[in-house]
């Protein structure tokens, strides 16, 4: 059940970042969140680089979910 909650939230947040529904998140999509979240552009860039495991400049749903699951389960423990 925890796993399902996590996947649901990850998908929801992915769509929050990928407003155009491209299926991936580019760095500029992440920077757009600067207006909505209390994070600096530098922080958002840091978040992007941390989640972009292969460093290709695009965040796939898999990369995003993997990063989110670490956060989610560390919060629940």
């Amino acid at each position: 059940p925890g796993q399902l909650d996590m996947l649901k939230k990850a998908q929801e947040f992915f769509q929050t970042c990928d407003t155009e529904g491209k299926g991936f998140i580019a760095k500029k999509d992440m920077q757009r969140l600067h207006n909505e979240l209390p994070l600096s552009l530098e922080d958002l860039e840091d978040v992007f680089d941390t989640l972009d495991a292969d460093g290709n400049g695009f965040l796939t749903p898999e990369e995003f979910t993997s990063g989110f699951s670490h956060f989610f389960f560390s919060q629940n423990n």
């Binding site: 939230k9 929801e12 947040f13 929050t16 909505e36 979240l37 209390p38 994070l39 922080d43 958002l44 840091d46 978040v47 680089d49 941390t50 989640l51 990063g67 989110f68 670490h70 956060f71 989610f72 560390s74 919060q75």
Partner: peptide, 29 residues
Amino acid sequence: DPNMKAGATSEGVLANFFNSLLSKKTGSP
């Protein structure tokens, strides 16, 4: 170890990011 420090910082920024998203979702109707 600078690498460990960078890792810990990134984790904090990630936690901050996801927490902000969580509160954004619950904060809006």
